[in-house]
Design a protein around this nucleic acid. Structure first.
Length: 479
RNA sequence: GGCCUCAUAGUAUAAUGGUUAGUACAACGGGUUUUCAUCCCGUCAAUGUGGGUUCAAUUCCCGCUGAGGUCACCA
């Protein structure tokens, strides 16, 4: 069956990790079944509308590699894809409800409604507006809210994730379908749109589970076919057990891009948070996710968001990109992540640095702190040498003479490549009688003054003969 | 508070009415001629609780507890 799914965010801000998954899963299902994935912008709340938020949404999806068949920019046969441009359509459907006696205009002032609500709260009885229906509602006209007239009863339905569901009459009420400002509510608009757009699977967070009986009633009253319901469990905060939201510090998805996370890793991580294929596979490409995804293996319990595994996955993806697609592919992803000192370096040189450092990267932004000494002479910090756990046993005179011996040995080296360098370094080891920990630490620190660096021979090879000898001499003089 | 959902190591998860309850991340320890990583090996670590059903329950049922969600002219 070709699944037609949708992601229907409201443009109230950025997309964060707590809510991207309701874009990812529908996308995977649509692609797997060769169906369609629709992007619809639910902008019926003018108060919460945020200028530019739609662009943020589009940007996020594009970064993750989630493309849509219908929606903003690409268009489609069921447009427009902004709910604010579909007002007439909602009105048409609402009029059907009025005609069949299943909707009524509600002139009750907001204060009165609040009073009803407070009354129920103080009596500790559930507040149901249908118990306070106005007796002689006027004919509906723009400017009045329109309410659905509930005919409460038992409902049973199936949720693809939560299983067989049941709800009694107490779950249904006279919900508002058209607001005073003429815009429809989510409760009404999404049903009309999903039906008009042919959506087969309604996938959304579990928070909508308790409103489903109201939706069921609406589908019935409108004579619409019911879609499959897929309730997605929440992503929870790392510590407390709370639905992850902006208030809990949920970062925007694109902030991870700026932090040097690869979209492959993000997609992989998010997809596997609350879903698995039953195997022990950890790394999934987008194509693998598409072919292996299945609704019946979506977890029904919430999952805590834990960045540790994302970081690990990102490291895996960085290495995978390098080993499977080569340095050029990885290099293209590193634009903007290099230290300022790298600005004047050639792409070739940057690639050379990248290819010896890549397996140390957890995120692309590690490049900033980990590669600076490849692009400029590091500041000499003798404390770092003297206090090094291997070097503190040696006297300063010894350090100086070791550096001098190293310089003179390396100066005679004609072919400056990794193998020759390793041979020379080994010779130095036996000639000086020092342990690798001593001699290599000294050289490594003298050329980098960094807490860590790639293998010594590779570091020196990349740095080049001139730079290496210059730096070693400078340190020898400074001691 | 009413209604709904959920419950395996610190985290994400696998599995079966009968197993030594598997895997990954994390943590800890070790190996790969310096460091930091990668890679490899190892260690620690879980079926929330009380009842049932059953020869046998982590698995099925019920209570409890805990956590989450929802009760808007927000989505």
């Amino acid at each position: 069956m070709k699944a037609i799914t949708r992601f229907a965010p409201s443009p109230t801000g950025y997309i964060h990790i707590g809510n991207v998954r309701s874009a990812i899963y529908p996308y995977l299902l649509a692609r797997q079944t060769n169906g369609k994935f629709i992007l619809r912008i639910e902008d019926t709340d003018r108060e919460r509308f945020v200028e530019g938020a739609t662009d943020l949404i589009l940007d996020t999806l594009k970064w993750l590699g989630i493309d849509w068949n219908e929606g903003p920019i690409v268009g489609g046969t069921h447009g427009p894809y902004f709910q604010s441009e579909r007002k007439e359509l909602y009105l048409e459907w609402a009029k059907k409800l009025i005609a069949s006696g299943r909707a009524y205009a509600d002139p009750t002032p907001k204060e009165q409604i609040d009073a009803y609500r407070n009354e129920c709260n103080s009596k500790k009885v559930p507040f149901l507006y249908r118990n306070f229906r106005p007796t002689n509602p006027p004919a509906w006209q723009p400017g009045l809210p329109l309410r659905f007239k509930a005919e409460p009863k038992d409902y049973s339905w199936h949720d693809e994730v939560m299983g067989d569901m049941h709800a009694g009459p107490e779950t249904q009420d006279d919900i508002i379908i058209i607001k005073q400002d003429g815009f429809p509510t989510y409760n009404f608009a999404h049903i009309v749109d999903d039906a008009e757009m042919g959506v087969t699977h309604v996938m959304r967070g579990v928070e909508y589970l308790s409103s489903t009986p109201n939706y069921l009633a609406l589908y019935e009253a409108l004579g619409l076919q019911m879609p499959y319901f897929v309730s997605l469990p929440h992503i929870l905060t790392p510590t407390g057990n709370k639905k992850l939201g902006k208030r809990d510090g949920a970062k925007s998805v694109t902030e991870y891009r700026d932090d040097g996370i690869l979209p492959e890793a993000m997609l992989n991580y998010l997809a596997c948070l609350g879903w698995n294929d039953g195997s022990e596979q950890e790394i999934y490409t987008k194509d693998e996710l598409i072919s292996k995804f299945s609704l019946d293996r979506i977890q029904s319990s919430g999952a805590r968001y834990d960045e540790t595994k994302l970081l690990w996955l990102n490291g895996q993806w960085i290495r995978r990109l390098f080993t499977e697609q080569g340095v050029d592919t990885l290099y293209d992803r590193t634009v903007g992540f290099w230290p300022d000192s790298a600005a004047s370096a050639s792409p070739e040189y940057q690639k050379q640095v990248l290819s010896i450092i890549y397996d140390r990267l957890k995120t692309l932004s590690d490049l900033k702190t980990m590669t600076d000494y490849f692009f400029r002479d590091p500041e000499i910090n003798l404390d770092l040498l003297i206090n090094n756990k291997f070097l503190k046993k040696l006297s300063e005179a010894e350090l100086e003479s070791l550096l001098k011996v190293t310089v003179s040995k390396l100066s005679t080296l004609n072919s400056w490549d990794a193998d020759s360098l390793q041979n020379t370094l080994n010779q130095l080891l036996s000639e000086t009688g020092k342990k690798p920990a001593e001699l290599f630490s000294l050289i490594r620190l003298s050329v980098s003054f960094a807490p860590f660096s790639p293998a010594l021979n590779l570091t020196l090879e990349t740095l080049g003969k001139e730079s290496t000898i210059f730096r070693l001499n400078a340190v020898a003089r400074a001691i």
